[in-house]
Design a protein around this nucleic acid. Sequence first.
DNA 1: CTGAAAGCGCTTACAG
DNA 2: CTGAAAGCGCTTACAG
Lengths: 343, 343
Amino acid sequence: MVTLLDVAASAGVSRSTVSLVINKSPLVKDETRQRVERAIQELGYVPNPNARGLVKKENKSLGVIIAIEDQPYNTYEFNYETGLYSYNITNGIPVGLANTDYGLLTERFCVSIQGKELPALVKNNRVDGIFLVGGLFTPELIERLKEKKIPIIAIGRYYDQIDSVSTDVTQGVYLGVRYLLDQGYRKICYINCPQIYRSNAERVAGVQKAMREFHLEMKPDWLVYCKHNTGEGGYEAIKRLWQSGARPQAIAAANEPIALGIMRFLYEQDIRIPEDIAIVSYEDSVLGGYAVPALTSVNIQKEYMGELAARIMLKRIRKGQEGELEHIIVEPNLVVRSSVGKC
Amino acid sequence: MVTLLDVAASAGVSRSTVSLVINKSPLVKDETRQRVERAIQELGYVPNPNARGLVKKENKSLGVIIAIEDQPYNTYEFNYETGLYSYNITNGIPVGLANTDYGLLTERFCVSIQGKELPALVKNNRVDGIFLVGGLFTPELIERLKEKKIPIIAIGRYYDQIDSVSTDVTQGVYLGVRYLLDQGYRKICYINCPQIYRSNAERVAGVQKAMREFHLEMKPDWLVYCKHNTGEGGYEAIKRLWQSGARPQAIAAANEPIALGIMRFLYEQDIRIPEDIAIVSYEDSVLGGYAVPALTSVNIQKEYMGELAARIMLKRIRKGQEGELEHIIVEPNLVVRSSVGKC
DNA sequence: CTGAAAGCGCTTACAG
DNA sequence: CTGAAAGCGCTTACAG
């Protein structure tokens, strides 16, 4: 393995000089720098990350902590959550990290089971900062995380204790329902996430805001909650509604898994989308783009949230933990595909 | 920050002894060990990974190199690849790494653009070994990778130069087509991947094996290739076939994106699945489980391939690079859902 | 079974 | 602008 010393010898300078060159210090004479750079090239020298990390007290790695409900169970089935939400968010992070040499380490963390411990990545001091994805983190856990004194950025959900990048849920839901109304639909039902989610109130507010603009009231029975954030959850919810005799012209779903559950039920009843009934979804994912028919959905910009979070992280690392918390709200936007017609 | 020295002082031993305890050496007297362990507990000591890595010459990180066609472009649309293949494989790796303290770093690498360089993770010596996912790696690139002298395991595709975990494509495709035949379908068409894929021959072999068992011949016109591995690719392929007048009883698709493209075309024609036409897919993903109707598909066990690859990696790190290459073939299995009936 | 000492490959004041 | 020296926090022979 070629080290600093080899480069120094080859270039005829001291180790400090080589180090200064590597770290782009302006203190080195141009001619010396070039000589050193040539030696680095020739020898194929690469700085040892551990040696550097040891003295600079940094890992050049960031952690993504994904909150999960229980043990990760790999399945593609309709009655399981898809994991696409955290996957898409995580995909955006490297975009914001481009042109840095930060690596990204991922860990799934079950708050309910491992709640008393810390994620291994932070416990073992493997990372210089962490991203929290998912809404399952408790305030207590976040407090314990903060004791490690590394930057923490929440993605997808607002937490008042730390920096966050989240989405305007009310506005997003509003956009979807509003689009249905704009297209002439009036008899609209909303299939919401399971009751336990705190963001449900924001969703309902979005529905109501749109309805009121059209001087309509949401029928209380037409606001239903799924048991799970899965296809089956949506399927069962629409089935119950249908069996109660409800015949909406359009359905707004809280996310794609739920929307696809609804679509499956309708398919079984031989009800055509969008000819017989319209459906609009929220969140957006490959499930929406690939759905049959393609789902009109509100895109909450998951990748972009990840990217922005990465930028905040870099800033925190550079400037330190002091200063105002940042709470960025990303605007959702409607993606019109083929599941809504004209009423 | 608490260091080895603090623990040593607190426990009244030397640093070497603490180090031996941490590394579970049997050389330490039981009573001493307990004293040291108590001190570690009390002080909340965590070994510094960089210091340890520096002397042991290891990173305790592994890299996943995902081959991509061109720049990653984030979209959920029907005319883009989904990325689910590499995502699912990558998800399996941590399972095989459980109870070790290896972290997993991911890098997307565009062979055609960055072909002359090495992935940053390996160039900068950030990882102790790498997993190659995707079939786009060239033999030359692999040779250059091997010069780094770290273990390399290919997942999903066989390469003769390195360890690999892959799938029996012919058997998988056979399973799917065979199932159609078993259910009574005879007029079957096969929608294959784009021509450039080397695995296409294996797929065709699978189709033919099944057909011959039933004393049938594949009509050459009914074996068609998509332009892209996307929904649109499948959509356009089936459209061409349909417009040529072909009316198959059943369709076998080379993967879910293609299958969903086919399903979209059929939906537009108001052709019901499975009542009017059956469809079987291959690979399996959340796109299949959530499809409307749910897709019967051949599961190639992507997560399990990742898990096995991780185990091989651990073995290679322990035992070194010597010894026979391992080439594991994972058996595919049919997942019966709702897209195939009885003919 | 335990301790003193050298060394892993860097960076960073400090002189000059 | 450059070099000698100390130090980051560990592990590992080597004595004893």
